[in-house]
Design a protein around this nucleic acid. Structure first.
Lengths: 125, 125
DNA sequence: ATATTATCAGTAATGATTCCTATTATTGAT
DNA sequence: ATCAATAATAGGAATCATTACTGATAATAT
């Protein structure tokens, strides 16, 4: 894969945040330092980074994908009240039963849905 | 919620399969017994069934939602070789650490990605 | 330096899902 | 059973995140 300034900018933005941003957010950030960058470039490179294992794609409900520069397998928590996506302190799913049945588990995506500690305190549900 | 023949048909189709179908597949099945049914009706009722807890929506990669008439919390396995979605024999994510930090976990969606036992045997990887 | 070709910006196309509107079907009340 | 009120429908148009296309630009190997 050939080097590109655009991909470097996108990767840096993604790695410098813990906010699990959307493609749109990354696009807006990238335009601050590279005003001519296009949305197609953002999507193409996010997909490329996903393919090479440098980023992971999180499909939450509602069809808007979110991206994460932290490629370690970890569980995400989606707050149904404020919409935040944060890293969960939770173990992965135990796949030993599947593997003993002949399935090879390569990856897993686990999303917990609920109410985060902030929204819980503020009494909004 | 008022009764409708269309919703009954959709629910029956969904409950009679274990294949985790797409809206499109359900639509084709429904047209066999009710040729005038429309795609909008299928989507509206799948969403209604989801809201009332009679069905669950599975967001796999690629943006095509799949639906499951089995509403018990269980983990899904997506075969990266043949594309099948099947129920995994695997426990859920342990949320006790999150809950002790003040998070309320209402639901969870866990998807394992890998190669199923059939594709593994056939050597296609 | 030059040729090759991946990547880009800009824009059009795609496709799953949702929304809109006139019509039809369900349900509670007469 | 009939009727009025109104949820649900069919069909099609609209939405919107994402992908594909195209001529121009820039990264690499020779």
């Amino acid at each position: 894969m050939r080097y590109s300034k655009q991909r470097e900018v996108i990767k840096r933005i993604l790695c410098e945040t813990k906010s699990h941003p959307t493609a749109e957010w990354i696009y807006r950030q990238a335009r601050e330092v590279m005003p001519s960058i296009s949305m197609g470039t953002v999507y193409r490179n996010l997909k490329l980074l996903g393919d090479t294992g440098e980023a992971q794609i999180i499909d939450t409900d509602g069809g808007v994908a979110r991206y994460d520069g932290d490629v370690s397998l970890h569980t995400h928590f989606v707050c149904l009240s404020c919409g935040r996506v944060i890293d969960a302190e939770a173990p992965l799913v135990d796949c030993s039963a599947m593997e003993s049945k002949g399935f090879r588990v390569i990856s897993q995506k686990n999303i917990l849905f609920g109410v985060c500690e902030k929204c819980g305190k503020s009494g909004k549900d």
